[in-house]
Design a binder for these strands. Sequence first.
DNA 1: CTGAAAGCGCTAACAA
DNA 2: TTGTTAGCGCTTTCAG
Lengths: 334, 334
Amino acid sequence: MVTLKKLAKELNVSVSTVSKALNDNDEISTETIAKVKALAKLYNYKPNRAALNLKSRNTKTIGVIIPNILNHFFAKVLFSIEKEASKQGYNIITCLSNESYDKEMKSLELLSNGSVDGFIVSVAEETQVANQTNHFNTIVEEKIPLVMFDRVLNEVECMKVVINDYETAFNTTTHLLNEGRKKIVLLSNISELSVGKLRTKGYVNALQSFPNYKNQPIILSQINSNDFEQEIHELLAKDTEIDAIIAIDNTSGVTALHKALKLNKQVPKDLSIIGFSDNNVLPFTNPKLTTVAQHPIAIGFNAVNMMIDKIENQTPENKKISISTELIFRETTL
Amino acid sequence: MVTLKKLAKELNVSVSTVSKALNDNDEISTETIAKVKALAKLYNYKPNRAALNLKSRNTKTIGVIIPNILNHFFAKVLFSIEKEASKQGYNIITCLSNESYDKEMKSLELLSNGSVDGFIVSVAEETQVANQTNHFNTIVEEKIPLVMFDRVLNEVECMKVVINDYETAFNTTTHLLNEGRKKIVLLSNISELSVGKLRTKGYVNALQSFPNYKNQPIILSQINSNDFEQEIHELLAKDTEIDAIIAIDNTSGVTALHKALKLNKQVPKDLSIIGFSDNNVLPFTNPKLTTVAQHPIAIGFNAVNMMIDKIENQTPENKKISISTELIFRETTL
DNA sequence: CTGAAAGCGCTAACAA
DNA sequence: TTGTTAGCGCTTTCAG
């Protein structure tokens, strides 16, 4: 590795001269600057990151903790975080909690030693179910900037980026009601999560505030996705009065559609289906799935910008941003 | 931030005593060790990473450069890399080249300053099309360990993890031939890539070495995926003799299936379809897609282990590992 | 205009 | 058993 020392020796000047020259310090003569830069270029000199970090007490790195990278929503948020961070000269260290509290806690601990300038996190399922907040509070106490997105813990005093889960589910359900649907089922494999609860509440309240709706809310929720497929099938097979489905997670809308088609239901004539999903390959079913777009790009963008603002300007208050969703009509609704 | 210095002051001992005590150095008395550790725990002391890096000249961090995180294959490899790296005490800095040569090169440059101990990369499309190797050769010259996976550049002297692309396509095509298929189309949106070329070659050679196959190879390849959907549709609509499709990228198999169904083709009776895809939600079509499993978990696992072996044991040779694929029969083949 | 020296936080050889 | 010192690579104040 080529260091300032080496350049200095070779040029018969001091280390500090080289350092200043490379930083265009006007204490240094233009000739010296030129000479130094030429040699630095020749040797492909790059200032050592560790030394820089030690000196400046920052790393230009953000720790990102994602529950599940195989979920397209999170993949897209990560994509956006990386893009925006990179644009602003920051690197990201990615940790995948895989929904485990333990992994999440350990990642937080491991990186809160000066490895990163702050954390952007979507909380693991285990953490949310048990409502664990200690590991995050430790981070907050250490004054390390923290942004939670999508799945957040209200009890933790930090920046937050969410979507308007409740309103989205309320409005989506209302749309189905306005279609004239009489028996609307909610499908969820995220009922333990903050977002799942809010969306479920929105669905229930929409049904209850609709004058002519007669049925009770029907909620099919499951963690294990293998059984879930089967359960969806059985539900649709047994109860032929079901005429609409709102699937509040990222995949079960597609599953429901395939099951409905297998049962020879006419979609959307007999049955409307709305999923939560981004504009990815998933909705490219036949017919194409109507979905709620969660705007993961905007979520990542805002998370990074809040973070960098906090890091660089020490803004004291903890902003909470809510991103509005959008119902994208395709072919599984009337 | 709490440092050794602070602990030392508080305990009226020297910094080195504290350091040694925390590292269980047997020069230090058990009482002192106990005292030091107690205070360290109380203050939640964590050794500063930057200082450690500077001292030890390693970072316990691997730079990972992925072309496209929205591609499920790469997401799963990343998942695997993170899991294995984490298990071995390494962090990963993730960069997304988004298929851009420029971004890839800049990421490489930015991180090759002691930010990481090595790189795991799948080459960007632009880089492969232009066969750019300089930026990687610079890394190699600087003796920074480098593993390429899936999309590799043969000209670069580094470790490699690939799948047996040629054989896979050959065998898959042969399977379709053995089904009795007479007109087999290859679909690809990756024809510019090393892997795409190898797979295409496997397909062509399989057709040519099959005695009774009469038709020429038919290859539909496209970068722009919007048009691609339309083109697939037209191809299937126009040429009704087509009775099998091998889709060598991650998504077009699903697209082809949906288009075929829309055209009222019986799958697999009239038309067999095989895609390249992992065991994710994509094959959960109706009927379920038969796919070539690329074992992304094994790819990530091997990449990390090669990398860490190189970092920690300075193994001189550059291994190349080939992971075998597997044809997973579902419902779109006979 | 250039250089010497201190210090970021840590480890480790050497002294006491 | 503990402390002193040097040094990892860099920046920056202060002297020259």
